[in-house]
Write a protein that binds this DNA or RNA. Sequence first.
DNA 1: GTGAAAGCGCTAACAT
DNA 2: ATGTTAGCGCTTTCAC
Lengths: 341, 341
Amino acid sequence: MRPTIRDVAREAGVSLATVDRVLNHRTGVRAATIRRVEDAVSRLGFVRDTAAANLSRRRDYRFVFLIPEGSNSFMRELEAQVVAMGARLRAARVAVEVIAIPPFDGDALAAALDRIDPREVSGIALVATEAPSVRDALVRLAGFGIPVVTLVSDAPLFPRSRYIGIDNVAAGRTAASLLGRFLGPREGRIALVAGSMLLRDHMERRMGFEQVMRAEYPRLTPLPVVEGRDDAETTRHALATLLAAEPGVIGLYNIGAGNRGVIEILRAAPPASRPVAVVHELTPHTRAALREGLAHAIIHQDAGHEARSALRVLRACADGAPVLEARERIRVEIYLRDNLP
Amino acid sequence: MRPTIRDVAREAGVSLATVDRVLNHRTGVRAATIRRVEDAVSRLGFVRDTAAANLSRRRDYRFVFLIPEGSNSFMRELEAQVVAMGARLRAARVAVEVIAIPPFDGDALAAALDRIDPREVSGIALVATEAPSVRDALVRLAGFGIPVVTLVSDAPLFPRSRYIGIDNVAAGRTAASLLGRFLGPREGRIALVAGSMLLRDHMERRMGFEQVMRAEYPRLTPLPVVEGRDDAETTRHALATLLAAEPGVIGLYNIGAGNRGVIEILRAAPPASRPVAVVHELTPHTRAALREGLAHAIIHQDAGHEARSALRVLRACADGAPVLEARERIRVEIYLRDNLP
DNA sequence: GTGAAAGCGCTAACAT
DNA sequence: ATGTTAGCGCTTTCAC
């Protein structure tokens, strides 16, 4: 039979309340008594039942997620995962709310943050935009001690407890390695497409990409980045313009979203002149492209993992509990045709 | 304020006991009463607090993990992860016990299973060996309704609730794709090393590997598999013998463990004649080899994920609760020098 | 069939 | 500085 605080109390010769005080490091207990209780705890191998403790405390949680709205498949998947996990966690006294934010709009994000009443919220997760107004809003929330995590795209200089997402420099390096290896001895230009170079994640991916290209594949020449606003049609048009102007493109790295636009272009190209393509995020479209041989590798991050990780980390922050680092590290996943999940 | 069964009882005009009966689908409630309670539940949006329910039920869990002993780094990591998670879960009324089993020994595994008292255990996880004695032991446990999951290596024809591990055919295919792509237009032989061709996981990996090689890289010729018993020294010796007999080996796939032996051979070989190497499982040794350029890709499965997944699945089985499929799928992870975690 | 009441292990007033 | 007691939300006898 598992020991309870009753057993500890008896063993230490004190009351339940005193055991509770010691367990929760509350003041007003003589040092000698503390020792007796602690001895009893270790002698019995007592471990506090957190469910019972939370029940008694009437502890509950309210977490808010701020996620960009729009057609970006990855963001939609992330939102769905947050909602799904929120539904599951209702039975564990946690409520999750998702607020849609116009994308690429720091002020809209800041306004949404300002609207949050810190007394009603136990934690916030947001896909960060690095605008001064966002910083101000986060400073205010930090003042109230609200745990905040950044999701997918970080803002390392803003007050936030933690970033939950991939190492984007590593992702960019990985893209370069894959292209370099897949292209073998060939020589030529590489097209780069991004959503916006003002987004930290896109910028970091590009940096990692260029690092590896310069150091290891000097025969491959990355072209200047074209921006597609993470939108299929804009991306398609930008890429079409680039390819028309630049012959000799043998590789392509889509740093951001807008994959549908990229894939259309690849499909329209004559097979012999199609570049080797590496894109981000496994979605129904990129999966189909990989299967068809239009894309050659997908670099992915697991939206479900990120959603659950954010929830676990926010809860741990709210409880002052430790975080299991290895579990929360988001992997830079590589998918080829053969290891698709 | 979150509704409780008191609110539901009041709303439905019945007692707490009746609400409980309906919630738990117990018999002895008039159909009309059931409807009234269910209506009240949905009107209030009531969700049962599982922590309170489990507390009241005095529900606790005892899970047993049977893991091969020995020097296999992956198995040691798996064991460490199970132990670590077990320690965390003690506060949630779950006890985890790990039993070490001699590797490659079906009868020893069966004997350990036979020693388990089904009344004292709520679930079992094992790294399966497909021996008849193991089957018999699992049949007995299934008779008592004990949930069983297989870890890392499956036994699909034995009674078990679920397999928790990677798709090994996909892993083998992935290895072949990587070798094929990395070798480019080169032509030659591929060395294959495994622990034992009697292990299902190794056999499946080999099958996937050959599938892709034959279909897509006919210029590459896989040699017959040499067996290293998942042991560094045995593996080293077996591989050395093979390479001495077979010149023209330009690629290598280590299907099983014993990576230390493989890496020694690679390091000893003159750089110009070193094969392109794909190995399994990220460990301190394989990580160093990847960094040094001795190995070129690592195919990995996350031991921590597997340990936690097994625990979650066993708990869900014990509770008759649903499993979130996407969360429990173990990924075939690919690591290059650039996306190492 | 249905209800009243006594816990599950812990916390938090309120006493002393 | 320490103890007593009434819950937290749910389950489970035991009556009626």
